[in-house]
Design a protein around this nucleic acid. Structure first.
Length: 382
DNA sequence: TACGCGTGGGA
DNA sequence: TTCCCAAGCGT
């Protein structure tokens, strides 16, 4: 089911969007940089020129908001202070440090990039745009960000902020994700880039998108470049950028079980190929609809571990999303008799809450862990 | 090329 | 409550 968001911006003239003139460009750079000097946020990755720290921040910030990434950034660098520390780390430890941030492939790619830098570049950060672009997890945006933020070389970049600012600035009346739009956006990014201060300029451009030229309720009154904004001139600001059709969410249901044996909980590692591959979870089973009682597969699973157990009557629901899937996971607590020495399936382990901290758990599973600790491990909490 | 991949904050 | 969408990348 496809639904379109927003009404069409009727560009009856199919003229391609035009670049700013030279005078406008000069003004744009100057006004933007002046605004940034007065309004820049104090962000931890802006205080350093350590290439490795900036790489970590850029990987974390891919599709992730500043407020979310901030704490992870500090913790990650404490855990893996240098590129060699990260290169030498176990993937499980890297994933554990990343757990909760989402898009876990990024963690593996960052790990791979650290190994590449350590082994192929002898620990020295590659300085050319091409070599940066060749690092695992580094695409066009991140290569431009690293080149300009680390080395202050005049490399253009386009991210969601820049796309939005430029779509409005140039009154781009087609979705920013089309290949035609991307071409325009990168061309504009090259044309407008400050060759003198690429680092400051790129930061400023993204900051404008984050603080002023926001997706909803843009603060045009505060905008330093409103005088050259074509969307503002044509009253199109709230209708740009044009968003692509959105995919309707698909509901999914699972029944899960928190097996409690003394102070230990049964968790299993998620198999490769699907969501959260390689991370850990409480066993769960796919259902057609939201189950009102523990489904057979779940009961059989519990019984395969031990015949000495008892279901707690009241389940608890956890809701979360993975891309366009809306998931409801109904969790039952099952107490296992500690005297019965339950089995341990090859893909799972009985873990204490302390053990659990050293395993990578996706966010919903962390929430479940807290819930179980509160409801079923009261006696064993410190 | 279009799609899949997580999560949390704000409206 | 629900929806939107964010410092994208790899395949």
């Amino acid at each position: 089911m496809i639904s379109t968001s927003g009404t069409d911006v009727n560009s009856s003239s199919n003229d391609p969007p035009k670049s700013l003139g030279e005078e406008e460009r000069v003004f744009f750079r100057k006004a933007l940089l002046k605004w940034y000097r007065l309004n820049a946020r104090d962000l931890p990755w802006r205080k350093t020129r350590d290439p490795y720290a900036i790489l970590v921040s850029e990987m974390m910030l891919q599709q992730t908001q500043v407020a979310t990434a901030r704490d992870y950034y500090e913790r990650f660098l404490k855990r893996f202070p240098t590129v060699r520390d990260l290169a030498a780390a176990d993937e499980t430890d890297v994933l554990t440090a990343w757990a909760g941030l989402g898009y876990y492939r990024r963690a593996r790619l960052l790990h791979a990039a650290a190994i590449t830098i350590s082994e192929k570049h002898a620990g020295d950060f590659p300085a050319s745009l091409d070599l940066l672009r060749a690092l695992p997890g580094v695409g066009d945006y991140t290569a431009g960000a690293l080149a300009s933020f680390v080395f202050d070389t005049p490399a253009a970049l386009v991210d969601a902020n820049v796309s939005r600012v430029f779509a409005r600035l140039h009154a781009l009346c087609e979705p920013t994700k089309t290949s035609s739009s991307k071409k325009h956006l990168w061309k504009w990014a090259e044309e407008l880039l400050s060759r003198r201060q690429p680092r400051l300029y790129n930061n400023a451009l993204m900051e404008l998108g984050a603080l002023v030229c926001t997706p909803a309720n843009p603060r045009c009154v505060q905008c330093p470049v409103i005088s050259v904004c074509r969307a503002h001139a044509s009253g199109l600001v709230t209708r740009l950028p044009v968003l692509p059709a959105t995919i309707a969410p698909v509901p999914l249901y699972y029944a899960g079980v928190a097996l409690v044996c003394g102070e230990k909980l049964f968790l299993r590692q998620i198999s490769e190929g699907g969501w959260h591959a390689g991370m850990w979870e409480f066993p769960k089973f796919s259902c057609e609809t939201l189950p009102t009682k523990p489904p057979r597969a779940l009961r059989n699973f519990v019984h395969s571990l031990t015949p000495h157990y008892a279901f707690e009557v009241q389940p608890h629901d956890f809701r979360y999303s993975v891309t366009h899937h809306r998931i409801t996971l109904r969790m039952w607590i099952v107490r296992v008799d500690p005297e019965s020495t339950p089995a341990c399936l090859p893909e799972g382990e009985w873990l204490t809450m302390q053990n659990l901290k050293n395993r990578p758990l996706p966010s919903p599973q962390k929430r479940i862990g807290k819930w179980v600790a509160q409801h079923a491990l009261m006696d064993s909490l410190p």
